[in-house]
Simulated scan of single mutants.
Amino acid sequence: MDKAYKESYRKLGLNIAFYRKDRGLTQMQLAELLDIDRSHMSAIELATVGVSLDVIFKMCNILSVSPKDLFDFRS
């Protein structure tokens, strides 16, 4: 992950966590639906790793949100 985008990854992680919790899912449940490890799910939300578009698109389907929703960073 390019450090220049660290803040954007942080905001993305916050949005993912928001929508995950809003849908009543735990990190473990979302990770299982995404077919990734729970620790990887945590790392995505904490912005310690990057995330592929494949995972983003699948996550959007699971959470019933658009990619725009996940990338709509609030100030």
Results as ranks from 00 to 15, higher is better:
S8D: 15
L46T: 13
L46S: 09
Q29F: 01
L70T: 05
K58F: 09
S64N: 15
K6N: 12
D35F: 04
M41F: 01
S8R: 15
F71K: 12
N61Y: 15
K6S: 12
S64W: 14
I44C: 06
K11H: 07
G50H: 04
Y5V: 13
S39P: 03
G13R: 01
P67E: 13
I56P: 07
H40E: 12
S75V: 11
A17R: 13
L30K: 02
L25T: 00
I62S: 08
T48D: 11
T26G: 06
S52G: 07
S64I: 07
R23S: 09
A43K: 06
K6C: 13
D35K: 07
R20S: 02
R74W: 10
A31Y: 00
D54S: 15
L46R: 10
K6D: 15
I62W: 06
A17G: 10
L63K: 00
N15V: 05
R38D: 03
M59Y: 04
G13Q: 04
K21S: 13
L70I: 06
K3P: 11
S42Y: 03
R38Y: 01
G24T: 05
N61Q: 12
C60Y: 08
T48F: 03
T48L: 08
S42A: 09
T26H: 07
G13H: 03
E32D: 09
Q27D: 08
L33T: 03
I62D: 08
A47T: 07
V65Q: 02
K6H: 11
S52V: 02
S8P: 13
V51D: 00
S39A: 09
Q29S: 05
D2F: 13
R23I: 01
K3C: 12
L12P: 04
K21F: 11
M59V: 04
F18A: 03
L25M: 11
E32C: 04
Y5I: 15
E32T: 05
K3A: 15
L30A: 04
S75Y: 14
L12M: 07
D37V: 04
F71W: 10
L46P: 10
M28K: 13
I36D: 00
R74H: 10
R20N: 05
S39T: 10
E7P: 04
P67I: 08
Q29D: 06
D54I: 14
I62Q: 09
H40W: 09
S42V: 03
A4T: 13
D22A: 15
C60P: 07
V51Y: 00
E45N: 09
L14A: 12
V65H: 03
K11F: 02
V65K: 02
L30R: 01
S8K: 15
C60E: 05
E7Y: 08
V51A: 01
D69Y: 09
K11S: 04
A4F: 12
T48V: 11
S42P: 05
T48M: 08
Y5H: 11
G24H: 05
R74Y: 14
L33W: 05
R23M: 11
Q27V: 04
L25V: 02
A31F: 00
L63C: 01
